[in-house]
Design a protein around this nucleic acid. Structure first.
Length: 106
DNA sequence: CGAGTGACCGCAA
DNA sequence: ATTGCGGCCACTC
């Protein structure tokens, strides 16, 4: 079976993202066991379970994804609806909104 | 079944 | 500061 544990890990991590916080693709990929497979996270995000909060996932720059259904505006609205502050340029404050499980106290 | 693509990241010049 | 390239795994056609 070659269980795609990578995707399972990614989904589990995305489900573990608390409300009002966001994570980066690279961080999720690293936690999933493959640092550098950030692209895969994006690929899973596009065809993964819609029940997950992919809108809480942003890139390392804190910028919103470009392939989000509805565009960045919908993504921005979804984040603000969760309590995440998004800049006018569709970017979240990496120093305040990004959630780091290994260093959440920053 | 085979090949290509993808919502990214990091480094080098 | 910007631009260009390679790399990873899973999913779709």
């Amino acid at each position: 079976m070659t269980t795609p544990e990578f995707r399972q890990e990614v989904e589990s991590i995305v489900k573990s993202i608390p409300k009002g916080r966001v994570m980066t693709y690279g961080q999720i990929a690293s936690l999933a066991g493959s640092p550098g497979a950030a692209r895969i996270v994006g690929g899973i995000a596009h065809f993964g379970d819609p029940d997950l909060a992919w809108h809480r996932v942003v890139n390392k720059q804190g910028g919103l994804a470009s392939g989000y259904p509805g565009g960045r505006s919908a993504h921005k609205m979804a984040l603000e609806k969760d309590g995440v502050i998004v800049s006018t340029n569709y970017k979240v404050n990496v120093k305040d909104a990004i959630w780091w499980p290994s260093n959440e106290n920053h």
